[in-house]
Computed example of a mutant assay.
Amino acid sequence: MPPNKKYLTQSPVQRFAKISAGFAGGYAVTEAFCMALASWTHAGNVLMTLRFAGAMLWVALMILAFLARNGWKIWGLYLLLSVFFYAMIYLGNDVNPLV
């Protein structure tokens, strides 16, 4: 059954923004989250756990990007989340330098 055309994104720019946010932005948020969690806890346990959970998180972020109306807002959200997680990495390395 083909999709209803009124629900599909008509603008090629918005379509590109959603696709790139889903792949690149979702991957950036997933990696930043994994590294932030590893900097605050034991890295070995986190890396083995997030081997599979990270893939599921990335897929969920890809789906979220395609559900959004505006691709640039999703890009902004993913960039803000990445900056937040990178700040957590920085703070985690300052607080727990040997972990």
Rank of each mutant, 00 (worst) to 15 (best):
A55P: 02
E31V: 04
G44M: 10
T30L: 00
W58M: 13
G26P: 10
L37H: 00
G92V: 06
R15V: 13
F85A: 01
M1H: 03
L67N: 15
F66A: 13
K18G: 13
N93D: 12
N93A: 10
L81A: 14
V46T: 09
F52K: 05
M62Y: 12
W72V: 15
V46C: 03
H42Y: 11
F84A: 14
L61E: 01
G71K: 13
M62H: 09
E31R: 05
S39F: 01
I89H: 00
L98V: 09
A36Q: 01
G76S: 11
L80P: 01
Q14E: 15
A21W: 06
V99P: 00
G76H: 13
G22A: 15
D94R: 14
Y27N: 09
A38I: 04
T9S: 08
M62F: 14
L50S: 03
A87T: 08
T30R: 01
W75D: 11
L57V: 08
A43E: 02
T49W: 03
A55N: 11
Y78E: 10
W72S: 14
A38R: 01
N93V: 12
L81Y: 08
V13W: 14
K18C: 14
I74G: 04
G54A: 09
L8N: 06
P2L: 05
N4V: 07
A53S: 11
M88N: 04
L57P: 04
M56Q: 07
I89P: 00
M48A: 08
K73G: 10
F66M: 15
F16K: 10
L79S: 12
P2T: 04
A28T: 05
S20F: 13
N70R: 15
W72N: 11
A17P: 02
G54F: 00
N96Y: 15
A65H: 04
E31G: 01
F23A: 12
G92A: 03
I74A: 12
N4L: 02
V46F: 03
G44N: 12
A32C: 02
G22H: 09
K5S: 08
Y27E: 11
A68W: 08
M62E: 09
Q14Y: 11
L79Y: 08
W58D: 06
S11Q: 08
D94Y: 10
P97V: 04
W40F: 04
V59C: 07
N45A: 04
A53R: 00
V13F: 10
R15S: 13
G26F: 09
V83E: 03
F85W: 03
W58A: 10
C34Y: 01
M1V: 07
S82L: 12
N70C: 13
A55M: 14
F33H: 00
N4K: 04
F66V: 15
R15E: 15
A43W: 09
T9Y: 06
V46E: 04
L8K: 04
F85Y: 06
G25Q: 09
N4M: 03
A43S: 12
